[in-house]
Write a protein that binds this DNA or RNA. Sequence first.
RNA 1: GCCGGGAUGGCGGAACGGCAGACGCGAUGGUCUCAAACACCAUUGGGCGAAAGCCCGUGCGGGUUCAAGUCCCGCUCCCGGCACCA
Length: 819
Amino acid sequence: MTDPYEPQSFEPGWAQRWESEAVYAVPDDPGGKPKRFVMEMFPYPSGDLHMGHVENYTIADAMARYWRMRGYCVMHPMGYDAFGLPAENAAIKRGIHPQDWTLSNIAKMRSSFLRLGYSYDWAREVISCLPDYYRWNQWIFLEMYRRGLAYRKTSPVNWCPVDKTVLAKEQISTGVCWRCGSVPEVRDLTQWFLKITDYSDRLLDDMDQLDWAESLLTMQRNWIGRSQGAEVVFKMKPDGSDETRDFPVFTTRPDTLWGATFFVLAAEHPAAAEMVAGTPQEGEYQAFVDDIRRQSEIDRLGAKGAGRGMRLPAVAINPVNGEEIPVWAADYVLMGYGTGAIMAVPAHDQRDFSFARKHNIPIRVVVQPDGEEPMDGDTMTEAAPGTGVLVNSGPFTGTRVDPQTQEGILDVIAWLDRQGLGRRQVNYRQRDWLVSRQRYWGTPIPIIHCPFCGEVPVPEEELPVLLPPQADYTPTDAAVSPLANNSDFVNVICPKCGGEARRETDTLDTFFDSSWYFLRYCDPQNDQAAFRPEKVAAWGPVDNYFGGVEHAVMHLIYARFFTKFFKDIGLLEFDEPFLKLFNQGHVSWDGKEMSKSTGHVIEAAAVIDAFGADSARTFILFSSPPAADYDFPADGYGEIGRVANSWLSRVWRILQDPSGEPVPDALNRQVHRTVKAITADMEEFGLNTAIAKMMELVNAFSKAGGPVPREAAEKFLRLLAPIAPFMAEELWHRYGNTDSVHRQPWPDYDEALAAVENVTMVVQVNGKVRDRMEVPAEISADEMKELALGSARVKEYLNGNEPLKVISVPPKLVNVVVR
RNA sequence: GCCGGGAUGGCGGAACGGCAGACGCGAUGGUCUCAAACACCAUUGGGCGAAAGCCCGUGCGGGUUCAAGUCCCGCUCCCGGCACCA
């Protein structure tokens, strides 16, 4: 008599027991065993867990369990990225304090994590919004400040004139303020930056230590955007004046200097405003700049913008030939890149070309591409950015140039240098990291502004600067950050001179929190330091990091930057935080992103309630390869959840009462083959195909009839344990075992038993299958050829002729090429 | 716009350059049942054919190769990122 499969009857018991017995806890030092630090990107606690979370966390948990069974001492921690905008939005909308909202969400998520049986070491939990964590953010910030890596400068923000608050990009995604619908303004604020650009070269060069997808490394490389070129100094002469002023530009193509037909300043360049001040064009310019500043950079450079420009009352003098060229202000030049000004060579740069055509600016060819008719600037339809020979280029006419190899270009730079007109320069697209946020729900920046002493760091013994619990997080007039309304918080005594001073009211970007939490996992309760170097040395760096590709840049670059900083100040011995990165696919529902705030979400708890945690785990792993995106069907999880549940029921039924019989030879061979194949799959994170192979083995058990021999059944349970840990544990114990299945070693296999004896050899004629033969697996190429030529089907096609060629790929395939 | 990724039956997907569609769902037929559910068995890419078998087929158009879903060139559409969502 078999019991029905009722996961709800045993899953909660095992979950509780694993937790109370701390089955997955690891010591501060892994000791003699090989260590493996496995972690997932910690979640933002926006509500309860949804199936998108379940995908990422189940993949990582299955792998962590697999590695544990393979003999690693696995540290697998979990935490919460708990500061951030949604908590504040919820607070403003519903009147709940951000902390209450956040902590109650964390409680829900933790309970779902436990129900799903994830093998976390719960003693290492990290919650970034609590003072015992964020005080170390403040400490880190001050360490950076002391070393000149944190500084202030002016930067624009979007400002809602009605709500009197700074708007995040997300809060104006429709172009207007999310709360009141008014059109945002742009304001300049003095804000904190981290000098990540000091690390650009190392961030690029150390990439060769990383076992990450090449596509992701490419994204990081492009984000940092190192480019070689030259700085060339133009002179700028305002109309009606003889005074000139030096104006350097960065260019990767100094070889095309003789083709510059205009000069462009970033629309918002202060020099542009200066030039039009007091002239009739002042109003026109102001309107032009306002229009452009309202747009995001993407719109400004993209299809919606790009190409808007205004002629300025000045000329620029080309240093190589003394030519005077018109000066424009344009949207496609950015203040933050290079010097905020460019020389424009429309014949050889596509953006310059489009702009020149639009504004009827002459186009002059100075690089004649190889093997083409001489080009004419008036008739060409697109820029020619490639290689060729310089023409109309003074002393360099006739020189070959190639942007790929820098051929010719380096000679031009050397010449510019000798003439005192320019010099070699490396430029980066990456900018310093803006960490200031004018928000309540974040880490207070530990700086005091004193009218006499200037910026004064909060003394270390006074950390943490606590977020005032009762602070009003709704905005009011005149205050830039909600914290600025709190006079108890703001008004302080200067630690240096003892006079009256004001506390900094900006908080830190939440990416700051997520840049080092993996280090805190190694020493989560430390109240004397962010972490002890020995503890991090014992576990770090992270061996396997699991997370979405949406973090390809930003988070992953920031965390790499922090790691290098910690190494520089002597706290770490490694350069890179995450050795191997796995990007799981993105989970959506009916083509749309799951989102707690819109209610378009499939909650993990609903799936567990309906089918059990093992089913939830199994179906999310089986339904698509871990790296691929998965879109839930419009009608939700019902169908697919039932499918996983019914397969697990089948496993339950077939494996419930094993026999003491020996394993029959044929079945035993299949078990060994399956262990071998699944082991190979697990090594490649192939969880969906691993499950498919388990299904095949279960089908074989079923076909064999009768109870499954216990030896085979126990091997199967060990294969199943990483995927469906509850059922594996329950059956394992029902067999009379007393230790946990999760402490068992991964099953091994016998090469000889796993080997196949016979294979089907395919016989092709001209690449099309015409015959099949059963042959021994160790057949030689010649034997195959002989067999193939003996085939009646092949003879039909040969028609008495000799084959042109016979390709033999032992033991699978022979291709006979005829005529 | 720029950077990165993707597209295979009715559906999720499988496939070291070597039998396209493993495994599963769904569907169809059957066994069991008074009946159903469950379970089990069989068939299931499209077309032609009585059958043997033949032809077509991995988003679109070219190419390389004895052989292309896989490699190369050119497109289309979808997804992610583009610096204040995390």
